[in-house]
Design a protein around this nucleic acid. Sequence first.
DNA 1: ATCAGTGCAAATGGTTTGCAGCATC
DNA 2: GATGCTGCAAACCATTTGCACTGAT
Lengths: 156, 156
Amino acid sequence: MHIDAKDLVADLRSQDLRITEPRRRVCEVIAARHGEHLSAVAIYDIVQSGSQSHIDRATVYRTLDALEDAGSIRHSHIGHGPTVYHLSNESHHQHLVCERCGNTVAVGKSQLGPFLDAIAEQTGFHVDVDHFALGGLCRECSDAAPADSSTSDVGQ
Amino acid sequence: MHIDAKDLVADLRSQDLRITEPRRRVCEVIAARHGEHLSAVAIYDIVQSGSQSHIDRATVYRTLDALEDAGSIRHSHIGHGPTVYHLSNESHHQHLVCERCGNTVAVGKSQLGPFLDAIAEQTGFHVDVDHFALGGLCRECSDAAPADSSTSDVGQ
DNA sequence: ATCAGTGCAAATGGTTTGCAGCATC
DNA sequence: GATGCTGCAAACCATTTGCACTGAT
């Protein structure tokens, strides 16, 4: 199921929100870049680059909030960077962010199953896999890292 | 093994750092509140409340950096709040933050072992368990949660 | 007496908010 | 034509930085 800008606009409309040019543009960017994880500022930049008329950052944030309230998109926190947004139907992987080089790796939901089940069993907690990334060291960086595990905290 | 302020001060000294009143105070707070996860501002507030002489927030941040470089403390990112600091020897749990009520639950590193091994095997990624919290819904909130269609992946 | 460490104030980055005017409904 | 949405500017919070001064070594 391919979500496009029209679907997002329809989601807004169904919430009795007015359809304005800035909102339409934000919807277009999100739909066009589906599959990516875009920050509010990135969305703002793309909107700007696509036309000469100016829309405000604040409006982008407000529109993202509206889309999130409408259930169309969700946000994730990946590493130390800004909040990123993605379509709600693209929510099934855990991000791992390398604390040294900043690269991210995604682990599919299927691989996480046993882990999530174990956590739910032990704590009753239902993890929302893609809301927060996990930190650590990627293969390359952990190979290069000093063997001393107690001081493996790097960067930032 | 109980780490106290003297140990932390000694750690700083062993890095050829000068021992100043502000640094000593920060060490005292961290040692006194061991087991807690304190933000820089919380540490600052506690230091302030414990005496009339003023120390600067920037100094707290710089001291925390120094202690982290010395390997004495580490920081974690728990939910949407500010960075929190804790003694390095208290670093073996994964925090789960409830996105609804804000409560946090900790899962011991030992329980996660098999899973982390699996991730390392599949992706080469070595997860630093306590650096980032995971989000989700705690038992109470997921029991109480409406079947919100937009977040249907939460409770899987 | 050196120079690391300090307080201060200003800058940063990401995000939010108050407000007056504009445009969608 | 009401009022929801906008741009603007300013505020925000956590954090960082430049700088001249102070104090640990």
